[in-house]
Amino acid sequence: MIQISTHIYCDSLFESMDIANKLLPNQYKDFPYLIIKNFFSQASCERLVQLVQKDEETKRKAQVKKEVIAGIVQAEVVEEYRKTNIYKLDSLYAKYYDDQFIKYKSVIEEYFSVALTLSTDVQVLEYKEGFFYIKHADDSSEIINKAKQTIAFKLVAPQRKLSTVLFATSHKTNVQNGAQSFSGGELMFNYLYNSKGEPVKIKPEAGDMIIFPSNPYFSHEVLPVEEGYRLTLVQWHDAI
Protein backbone atom coordinates (compact mmCIF):
# COMPACT_ATOMS: atom_id res chain seq x y z
CA MET A 1 0.00 0.00 0.00
CA ILE A 2 1.03 3.60 -0.61
CA GLN A 3 0.47 6.20 2.11
CA ILE A 4 -1.31 9.25 0.64
CA SER A 5 -2.35 11.02 3.87
CA THR A 6 -1.77 10.67 7.59
CA HIS A 7 -4.43 8.00 8.06
CA ILE A 8 -5.17 6.68 4.55
CA TYR A 9 -3.33 4.44 2.09
CA CYS A 10 -4.06 3.57 -1.54
CA ASP A 11 -3.62 0.37 -3.50
CA SER A 12 -0.08 -0.25 -4.76
CA LEU A 13 -1.45 -0.92 -8.29
CA PHE A 14 -1.30 2.85 -8.87
CA GLU A 15 2.51 2.76 -8.71
CA SER A 16 2.65 1.32 -12.24
CA MET A 17 -0.31 3.16 -13.80
CA ASP A 18 -0.38 6.35 -15.84
CA ILE A 19 -3.33 8.23 -14.35
CA ALA A 20 -4.34 11.29 -16.41
CA ASN A 21 -5.84 13.22 -13.50
CA LYS A 22 -3.60 12.72 -10.46
CA LEU A 23 -5.18 15.36 -8.24
CA LEU A 24 -4.52 14.53 -4.59
CA PRO A 25 -4.48 16.84 -1.57
CA ASN A 26 -1.27 17.40 0.36
CA GLN A 27 -0.09 14.09 1.84
CA TYR A 28 0.20 15.71 5.26
CA LYS A 29 -3.57 16.13 5.47
CA ASP A 30 -5.26 13.68 7.84
CA PHE A 31 -7.45 12.38 5.00
CA PRO A 32 -7.33 12.67 1.18
CA TYR A 33 -11.00 13.69 1.17
CA LEU A 34 -12.82 16.49 2.99
CA ILE A 35 -15.98 16.10 5.07
CA ILE A 36 -18.00 19.23 5.86
CA LYS A 37 -20.39 18.72 8.76
CA ASN A 38 -23.83 20.35 8.69
CA PHE A 39 -23.57 21.57 5.09
CA PHE A 40 -27.36 21.28 5.26
CA SER A 41 -29.21 21.63 8.56
CA GLN A 42 -31.03 18.61 9.97
CA ALA A 43 -34.39 20.34 9.45
CA SER A 44 -33.54 21.08 5.81
CA CYS A 45 -32.59 17.46 5.22
CA GLU A 46 -35.85 16.22 6.69
CA ARG A 47 -37.89 18.60 4.56
CA LEU A 48 -35.96 17.64 1.42
CA VAL A 49 -36.67 13.96 2.03
CA GLN A 50 -40.37 14.77 2.33
CA LEU A 51 -40.34 16.72 -0.94
CA VAL A 52 -38.53 14.00 -2.87
CA GLN A 53 -40.78 11.24 -1.58
CA LYS A 54 -43.78 13.21 -2.83
CA ASP A 55 -42.20 13.82 -6.21
CA GLU A 56 -43.22 10.49 -7.76
CA GLU A 57 -44.38 12.03 -11.06
CA THR A 58 -40.95 13.35 -12.05
CA LYS A 59 -39.03 10.29 -10.96
CA ARG A 60 -37.05 8.46 -13.61
CA LYS A 61 -34.43 5.78 -13.61
CA ALA A 62 -30.90 7.08 -13.21
CA GLN A 63 -28.85 6.82 -16.37
CA VAL A 64 -25.29 5.69 -16.83
CA LYS A 65 -22.90 6.40 -19.65
CA LYS A 66 -22.17 3.56 -21.99
CA GLU A 67 -19.52 3.78 -24.67
CA VAL A 68 -20.48 2.15 -27.96
CA ILE A 69 -18.75 1.75 -31.31
CA ALA A 70 -17.31 4.82 -33.04
CA GLY A 71 -16.75 6.46 -29.67
CA ILE A 72 -20.36 7.59 -29.33
CA VAL A 73 -21.53 7.87 -25.74
CA GLN A 74 -25.16 7.21 -25.03
CA ALA A 75 -27.06 7.26 -21.74
CA GLU A 76 -29.28 4.38 -20.81
CA VAL A 77 -30.52 2.55 -17.75
CA VAL A 78 -28.26 -0.37 -16.86
CA GLU A 79 -29.55 -1.85 -13.62
CA GLU A 80 -26.78 -4.44 -13.62
CA TYR A 81 -24.45 -1.56 -12.75
CA ARG A 82 -26.65 0.84 -10.88
CA LYS A 83 -30.06 0.79 -9.27
CA THR A 84 -31.17 4.20 -8.07
CA ASN A 85 -33.71 6.91 -8.86
CA ILE A 86 -32.92 10.48 -9.87
CA TYR A 87 -34.80 13.70 -9.19
CA LYS A 88 -34.47 17.37 -10.09
CA LEU A 89 -33.63 19.58 -7.14
CA ASP A 90 -36.41 21.92 -6.02
CA SER A 91 -35.65 25.56 -6.95
CA LEU A 92 -35.64 26.78 -3.35
CA TYR A 93 -33.30 23.99 -2.33
CA ALA A 94 -31.12 24.68 -5.36
CA LYS A 95 -30.62 28.24 -4.13
CA TYR A 96 -29.95 27.04 -0.58
CA TYR A 97 -27.41 24.55 -1.93
CA ASP A 98 -25.67 27.19 -4.06
CA ASP A 99 -25.54 29.63 -1.13
CA GLN A 100 -24.01 26.97 1.10
CA PHE A 101 -21.52 25.94 -1.56
CA ILE A 102 -20.34 29.52 -1.99
CA LYS A 103 -19.92 29.70 1.78
CA TYR A 104 -17.56 26.70 1.77
CA LYS A 105 -15.95 27.21 -1.65
CA SER A 106 -12.73 28.70 -0.30
CA VAL A 107 -12.41 25.89 2.25
CA ILE A 108 -12.66 23.29 -0.52
CA GLU A 109 -10.20 25.14 -2.76
CA GLU A 110 -7.64 25.47 0.03
CA TYR A 111 -7.92 21.81 0.99
CA PHE A 112 -7.27 20.54 -2.55
CA SER A 113 -5.07 23.46 -3.72
CA VAL A 114 -7.30 24.23 -6.72
CA ALA A 115 -9.51 26.99 -8.06
CA LEU A 116 -13.03 25.76 -8.81
CA THR A 117 -14.49 26.81 -12.15
CA LEU A 118 -17.61 25.15 -13.60
CA SER A 119 -19.99 22.72 -11.90
CA THR A 120 -22.67 20.37 -13.18
CA ASP A 121 -26.29 20.54 -12.13
CA VAL A 122 -27.00 18.85 -8.82
CA GLN A 123 -28.42 15.33 -9.05
CA VAL A 124 -30.73 14.10 -6.30
CA LEU A 125 -30.19 10.34 -5.99
CA GLU A 126 -32.57 8.07 -4.13
CA TYR A 127 -31.57 4.60 -2.89
CA LYS A 128 -34.28 2.36 -1.46
CA GLU A 129 -33.82 -1.10 0.03
CA GLY A 130 -31.72 -3.23 -2.32
CA PHE A 131 -30.53 -0.27 -4.40
CA PHE A 132 -26.78 0.05 -5.14
CA TYR A 133 -24.10 1.39 -7.49
CA ILE A 134 -21.14 -0.81 -8.46
CA LYS A 135 -17.48 0.28 -8.41
CA HIS A 136 -16.63 3.18 -10.71
CA ALA A 137 -14.39 6.24 -11.06
CA ASP A 138 -16.20 9.51 -11.76
CA ASP A 139 -13.80 10.67 -14.48
CA SER A 140 -12.59 7.39 -16.00
CA SER A 141 -13.55 3.98 -17.31
CA GLU A 142 -11.73 1.04 -15.74
CA ILE A 143 -10.04 -1.36 -18.18
CA ILE A 144 -9.99 -4.99 -17.04
CA ASN A 145 -8.20 -7.95 -18.70
CA LYS A 146 -9.51 -11.48 -19.19
CA ALA A 147 -8.27 -12.43 -15.72
CA LYS A 148 -10.49 -9.66 -14.34
CA GLN A 149 -7.46 -7.64 -13.28
CA THR A 150 -7.45 -3.85 -13.53
CA ILE A 151 -4.75 -2.87 -16.02
CA ALA A 152 -5.55 0.78 -16.82
CA PHE A 153 -8.03 3.64 -16.61
CA LYS A 154 -9.29 5.62 -19.62
CA LEU A 155 -10.14 9.27 -18.95
CA VAL A 156 -13.65 9.95 -20.28
CA ALA A 157 -14.78 13.02 -18.30
CA PRO A 158 -11.75 15.32 -17.97
CA GLN A 159 -13.93 18.19 -16.75
CA ARG A 160 -14.62 16.28 -13.54
CA LYS A 161 -11.87 17.19 -11.09
CA LEU A 162 -13.78 17.04 -7.78
CA SER A 163 -16.89 15.12 -6.76
CA THR A 164 -19.23 16.19 -3.97
CA VAL A 165 -21.82 14.05 -2.21
CA LEU A 166 -24.23 15.61 0.27
CA PHE A 167 -26.13 13.16 2.46
CA ALA A 168 -29.73 14.02 3.32
CA THR A 169 -30.26 10.89 5.45
CA SER A 170 -28.08 9.26 8.10
CA HIS A 171 -26.36 5.90 8.23
CA LYS A 172 -27.54 3.88 11.24
CA THR A 173 -26.71 0.38 12.40
CA ASN A 174 -30.29 -0.03 13.57
CA VAL A 175 -32.79 1.92 11.48
CA GLN A 176 -35.54 3.44 13.60
CA ASN A 177 -36.89 6.05 11.18
CA GLY A 178 -36.96 4.41 7.77
CA ALA A 179 -37.57 7.72 5.98
CA GLN A 180 -34.59 9.55 7.52
CA SER A 181 -31.94 6.85 7.91
CA PHE A 182 -30.51 3.72 6.32
CA SER A 183 -28.33 0.70 7.06
CA GLY A 184 -25.93 -0.74 4.52
CA GLY A 185 -25.54 1.69 1.64
CA GLU A 186 -22.08 2.84 2.71
CA LEU A 187 -19.98 4.87 0.29
CA MET A 188 -16.94 2.59 -0.05
CA PHE A 189 -13.67 3.64 -1.68
CA ASN A 190 -12.37 0.52 -3.38
CA TYR A 191 -8.68 1.46 -3.51
CA LEU A 192 -8.37 3.42 -0.26
CA TYR A 193 -7.53 1.71 3.04
CA ASN A 194 -7.06 2.58 6.69
CA SER A 195 -4.00 1.61 8.71
CA LYS A 196 -5.48 -1.87 9.26
CA GLY A 197 -5.78 -2.47 5.52
CA GLU A 198 -9.57 -2.19 5.57
CA PRO A 199 -11.39 -0.40 2.71
CA VAL A 200 -12.58 3.09 3.64
CA LYS A 201 -16.35 3.20 4.18
CA ILE A 202 -18.20 6.47 4.79
CA LYS A 203 -21.09 6.24 7.26
CA PRO A 204 -22.54 9.75 7.26
CA GLU A 205 -24.89 11.85 9.32
CA ALA A 206 -27.62 13.77 7.49
CA GLY A 207 -26.20 17.13 6.43
CA ASP A 208 -22.64 15.85 5.86
CA MET A 209 -20.94 16.62 2.56
CA ILE A 210 -17.90 14.67 1.39
CA ILE A 211 -15.60 16.12 -1.29
CA PHE A 212 -13.03 13.95 -3.08
CA PRO A 213 -11.06 13.95 -6.36
CA SER A 214 -12.93 12.35 -9.25
CA ASN A 215 -9.94 10.31 -10.38
CA PRO A 216 -9.41 6.51 -10.18
CA TYR A 217 -7.64 6.66 -6.82
CA PHE A 218 -11.11 7.43 -5.46
CA SER A 219 -13.01 4.72 -7.33
CA HIS A 220 -16.03 3.95 -5.20
CA GLU A 221 -19.32 2.13 -4.93
CA VAL A 222 -22.55 2.42 -3.01
CA LEU A 223 -23.09 -0.85 -1.17
CA PRO A 224 -26.63 -2.26 -1.29
CA VAL A 225 -29.03 -0.53 1.07
CA GLU A 226 -30.17 -3.11 3.61
CA GLU A 227 -32.93 -1.11 5.24
CA GLY A 228 -34.32 2.42 5.22
CA TYR A 229 -33.86 5.27 2.78
CA ARG A 230 -30.64 6.80 1.40
CA LEU A 231 -30.88 10.23 -0.27
CA THR A 232 -27.88 12.16 -1.62
CA LEU A 233 -27.17 15.29 -3.66
CA VAL A 234 -24.31 14.70 -6.10
CA GLN A 235 -22.33 17.18 -8.16
CA TRP A 236 -19.10 17.29 -10.18
CA HIS A 237 -16.73 20.25 -10.48
CA ASP A 238 -14.05 21.37 -12.88
CA ALA A 239 -10.99 23.10 -11.42
CA ILE A 240 -7.58 24.48 -12.25
Score class of each variant (00 low, 15 high):
residue 107 V to P: 02
residue 179 A to G: 05
residue 132 F to E: 11
residue 73 V to M: 06
residue 229 Y to C: 05
residue 21 N to P: 08
residue 32 P to S: 04
residue 89 L to M: 12
residue 24 L to N: 07
residue 3 Q to G: 13
residue 125 L to I: 15
residue 177 N to A: 14
residue 198 E to W: 09
residue 228 G to N: 08
residue 91 S to E: 15
residue 147 A to P: 05
residue 54 K to D: 10
residue 61 K to C: 00
residue 196 K to F: 15
residue 115 A to H: 14
residue 29 K to Q: 14
residue 23 L to F: 04
residue 167 F to W: 13
residue 150 T to S: 06
residue 81 Y to S: 08
residue 15 E to Q: 11
residue 120 T to G: 01
residue 67 E to T: 08
residue 122 V to P: 01
residue 56 E to L: 14
residue 125 L to M: 15
residue 19 I to P: 03
residue 140 S to K: 10
residue 100 Q to M: 10
residue 127 Y to A: 08
residue 199 P to A: 14
residue 240 I to K: 15
residue 78 V to W: 01
residue 129 E to K: 15
residue 170 S to L: 10
residue 72 I to M: 13
residue 210 I to C: 02
residue 205 E to C: 13
residue 74 Q to H: 14
residue 203 K to L: 13
residue 124 V to M: 12
residue 238 D to F: 02
residue 128 K to P: 07
residue 11 D to G: 06
residue 55 D to H: 13
residue 165 V to E: 00
residue 167 F to I: 05
residue 192 L to A: 03
residue 54 K to W: 03
residue 210 I to M: 08
residue 138 D to M: 09
residue 28 Y to G: 09
residue 34 L to V: 00
residue 30 D to K: 09
residue 165 V to S: 01
residue 170 S to C: 09
residue 11 D to S: 15
residue 4 I to Q: 00
residue 65 K to C: 08
residue 95 K to M: 07
residue 73 V to K: 12
residue 107 V to G: 01
residue 102 I to F: 14
residue 29 K to M: 05
residue 122 V to A: 06
residue 175 V to K: 02
residue 225 V to G: 00
residue 151 I to W: 08
residue 58 T to Y: 07
residue 203 K to S: 14
residue 111 Y to L: 02
residue 195 S to C: 14
residue 198 E to V: 12
residue 153 F to P: 05
residue 168 A to E: 03
residue 111 Y to T: 00
residue 36 I to V: 00
residue 151 I to D: 07
residue 203 K to P: 10
residue 6 T to C: 03
residue 153 F to Q: 13
residue 141 S to N: 08
residue 148 K to W: 10
residue 202 I to E: 02
residue 61 K to A: 12
residue 142 E to Y: 13
residue 68 V to N: 12
residue 40 F to K: 04
residue 89 L to H: 03
residue 11 D to F: 03
residue 85 N to C: 09
residue 87 Y to D: 08
residue 93 Y to S: 05
residue 150 T to D: 02
residue 30 D to C: 01
residue 63 Q to C: 02
residue 220 H to S: 02
residue 35 I to V: 15
residue 40 F to S: 11
residue 63 Q to V: 05
residue 57 E to T: 10
residue 121 D to F: 00
residue 175 V to Q: 05
residue 112 F to A: 04
residue 98 D to G: 11
residue 59 K to A: 04
residue 59 K to L: 06
residue 50 Q to P: 07
residue 158 P to T: 05
residue 111 Y to K: 02
residue 144 I to P: 09
residue 58 T to P: 04
residue 53 Q to I: 09
residue 165 V to P: 02
residue 121 D to I: 00
residue 145 N to Q: 07
residue 157 A to Q: 12
residue 218 F to L: 04
residue 238 D to R: 01
residue 175 V to L: 13
residue 222 V to H: 02
residue 89 L to G: 03
residue 36 I to Q: 01
residue 33 Y to K: 00
residue 31 F to H: 07
residue 78 V to L: 06
residue 89 L to Y: 06
residue 31 F to E: 05
residue 89 L to D: 11
residue 75 A to W: 14
residue 10 C to R: 05
residue 80 E to T: 12
residue 20 A to W: 09
residue 198 E to C: 14
residue 70 A to I: 12
residue 40 F to T: 10
residue 223 L to I: 06
residue 134 I to Q: 12
residue 227 E to H: 12
residue 236 W to F: 14
residue 188 M to D: 04
residue 97 Y to K: 02
residue 23 L to G: 01
residue 25 P to L: 01
residue 219 S to T: 13
residue 215 N to G: 08
residue 5 S to T: 07
residue 27 Q to A: 09
residue 30 D to W: 03
residue 115 A to Y: 11
residue 110 E to A: 09
residue 176 Q to R: 14
